[in-house]
Design a protein around this nucleic acid. Structure first.
Lengths: 116, 116
DNA sequence: CTTTTTTACCACGTCTGTCGTACTACGTCT
DNA sequence: AGACGTAGTACGACAGACGTGGTAAAAAAG
C-alpha cells in the first residue's frame, strides 16, 4: 500500500528538515535519503520536494548555497540547503505537534480493524 | 498547541467514520463526540464536517436519512448518517494506512527534540 | 418576556500543499 | 546511439480545509 499524499501533507517540510539536521544536502540526495530511511516506503515526489524548498526558504527555515565544485572537472550544478535556527525551532514544534496528533488519532484507529 | 489542519487532512473522513461505526448520528452530535473523545484536543470545523458528509455520500461511504420525529412535537430538522459496507471497508484501509504512516514518520521525529 | 446561547445546517469563495506533465542538460553504461 | 541516472525547474490543476456569513428553532439566562 502506498501512503496517500494527504497523510504526510504538512509534514514533508518536517521530513526534509530532519535530513538537514544531520548535514547540509541538496534535492536529489535528500530524496534518496528519505527513501533509504524508510526502505522505499515513502518516496517524495520531485515537485513536492522542490516546492518545499522554495516555501521553506521564503519562511526562513532553510538557506540555499551553490556547491563549490569539487577539484577536478565539471561538477554538475547543485543547490545545497542548510537548516537555520528558525528551521530547527520549527522542526521541534512540528515534532511536538506530531506526537499530539498521534495521541488524537489513536482514539479513532482500531489497530486490528478486521476484527471489528 | 492546536493541531494544524494539514496534519489530519485526509483523516477527517476516517474520524467521522469511526464515530459512525458505533451508531448512526448527525453533524452536531458527531462534532461533539469527536471533542469528547479527544478531550477537546481536536475540534472539527463545521464546514470541514459538512463538506466531508457531501464527499463521503458521493463516494458511497455513508448514507443520509431524515430523522423520524420522536413522538411529541416539533423535532428539529436533522440529517442522520449511517456508514455503508463500502465505508467500513474504506475505514479499515485508512486504519492500515495510518499505521504505516506512523511507522514512516517515526524515522523523522525526535521524541525529545529539545535534547538534540 | 426579552435576550443570549445552544442546537443544526448550508452556500460560496479562497487558500495551500501536492502532484501530473513536460522540459533542460550533463554523465555513464551498454 | 540510446537508455538510464543525476539534478533541477515551470506551469497548471486538484482537492481538502476553512473563513465568512446566513437561516432557523429550542433552551437557558437575565
Amino acid at each position: 500500500m502506498a501512503i496517500s499524499s494527504d497523510v504526510i501533507r504538512g509534514y514533508n517540510d518536517t521530513i526534509i528538515l530532519y535530513v538537514l539536521l544531520n548535514s547540509d544536502s541538496y534535492g536529489y540526495e535528500i530524496s534518496k535519503e528519505i527513501r533509504r530511511l524508510t526502505d522505499d516506503k515513502y518516496v517524495i515526489k520531485e515537485t513536492t520536494l522542490y516546492s518545499a524548498f522554495t516555501r521553506m526558504e521564503r519562511n526562513g527555515y532553510i538557506e540555499s548555497f551553490e556547491a563549490e565544485p569539487e577539484a577536478e572537472g565539471t561538477e554538475k550544478r547543485r543547490t545545497y540547503y542548510r537548516i537555520t535556527d528558525a528551521g530547527r525551532s520549527y522542526y521541534r514544534e512540528k515534532c511536538e505537534e506530531w506526537l499530539l496528533t498521534k495521541d488524537v488519532m489513536a482514539h479513532f484507529i482500531l489497530e486490528d480493524p478486521v476484527k471489528q
